[in-house]
Design a protein around this nucleic acid. Structure first.
Lengths: 253, 253
DNA sequence: CCATTCAATGAATGTTCGTTCAAGTTGCGA
DNA sequence: TCGCAACTTGAACGAACATTCATTGAATGG
């Protein structure tokens, strides 16, 4: 899942970058195809190796944390030698960044896709987006947890990148809330806050899985959370009965 | 703040446990008082030292993470020698556990206190408890973040302890929701889920401070979040208009 | 069948760090 | 003033670890 885009995102990395000098000049078709298939095989191998490494690294970090992960252990788990890891990643730090970027990339791609597939209605869009978000988290719970625990460990650039990706991820939520407010379906709530809450609720499925999973299935959780949020932001459907709403509604800000 | 209970909680630790052999036989009252004041001074020193160490450790871990924290660095920051740390903690792991337990202890004490001070009304109790929760987080943001990042690093016993303390912390929230449902002020929502959401919203002030703080002050955040939650769970105040509430309210479990 | 290229290995290296402990210091009672 | 006990120090030790690199092995091309 998203392996392609990950490889692309990660490619900033190590050596290996001996850019395909082929594309310049080699008119023979057989020559071309030979070079191409070579190139292709190479790319495939690189991808496979990186995936191997990232999976092993994610597993180990989940158990022990970044600091408890030795490159030796990663190599063993991935079924290769230590040295080989350094062919595909410049160092331990870069392995961490790749693991984190991989899952953020899934969010960025899958959440908007699900929302667009859900049509125009803001409520349906929020539902679909939130469900997709939670499902990605559920599928990659280990990596999601890592993204939290070890973000601080990243280089400043790495952290900036992660922050930016996270902002992008929640932008569709903000837009849906704004759209709903515009149509009058939603109260005048802060799109930032609602989007933030949905994001946190999704993250919580990973962060607090030990507390939630015994009570709820993933689908139940998704249903319950989105219903709660929608209850909070739906415009009251009863324009009648005077303003005397009992409660002090100093809704702040 | 809560230093006392922390010292107690942590006491399982290192050597130092050369239990007061005095208590066996020394009838002279002057003897006794002399011994007592000695004991007291000793305890005070232990507390002061532990606090010194924990503050330094929390600061360093916030910047570098547990793995980036060397005992040498802690000693320097705390203004003491490496060896001395081992007089008060059995090892690096125990320092981490103490830092985490310290803040959880604040929650456990301060949140119920604030709720009890707020009176009987479930809504007011939730408001007060949530505000207290957030304020503790805000006051000790570094430690709160650590509790997240490094919980996995703890020993199994340490993790179990932290889990238990967290459950205790949110119990008052669950009770308030149940009470509100019983009086009919709240809809029939899951107390577990609502308490969980409030806890997460409070945690988020630490977890996502970089995203929230530019938009909102702490007080504004508290207001906005609790208002949103209460909007979601308040019973509709209009008993008229038939049962057709439109929404599918299969709020599961 | 040789030459070349490149993936892959894993022992060796240099460093960092948690922990220990022998030795020094301080404070207090006699 | 002496002696004792508790407190404190920090150099030293050993283990772990990230990273390197000389070497092996396999595939390709002529």
């Amino acid at each position: 899942m998203s392996t392609t885009s990950t490889a692309e995102t990660t490619e900033s990395s190590a050596a290996k970058a001996s850019a395909p000098s082929a594309s310049s000049a080699s008119p023979e078709p057989e020559e071309l195809s030979r070079v191409d298939s070579r190139e292709e095989a190479r790319r495939e191998r690189i991808e496979r190796r990186q995936a191997q490494i990232l999976e092993a690294a994610a597993r180990i970090m989940y158990d022990t944390g970044f600091h408890g992960m030795s490159m030796q252990a990663v190599a063993e788990r991935a079924g290769m030698s230590v040295g080989l890891i350094y062919q595909y990643f410049a160092g331990k730090d870069e392995v961490l960044e790749a693991v984190i970027v991989e899952i953020l990339d899934d969010f960025r791609v899958l959440v908007p896709a699900a929302m667009d597939a859900a049509g125009e209605d803001p409520e349906q869009r929020l539902r679909a987006g939130f469900a997709a978000f939670c499902k990605v988290i559920d599928a990659r719970r280990e990596a999601a947890l890592l993204a939290y625990r070890e973000s601080q460990t990243l280089s400043p650039q790495g952290r900036a990148k992660v922050t930016r990706m996270e902002e992008e991820t929640t932008e569709p939520f903000r837009e849906a809330v704004r759209a709903g407010t515009a149509t009058g379906q939603f109260r005048a709530v802060s799109p930032e806050l609602v989007a933030h809450n949905l994001k946190m609720a999704a993250h919580a499925w990973a962060l607090k899985h030990w507390a939630l999973a015994p009570h709820l299935s993933l689908d139940e959780y998704i249903e319950a959370e989105i219903d709660l949020t929608l209850s909070a932001i739906r415009a009251e459907r009863i324009p009648s009965s005077s303003g005397g709403l009992k409660g002090r509604s100093r809704s702040g800000r």
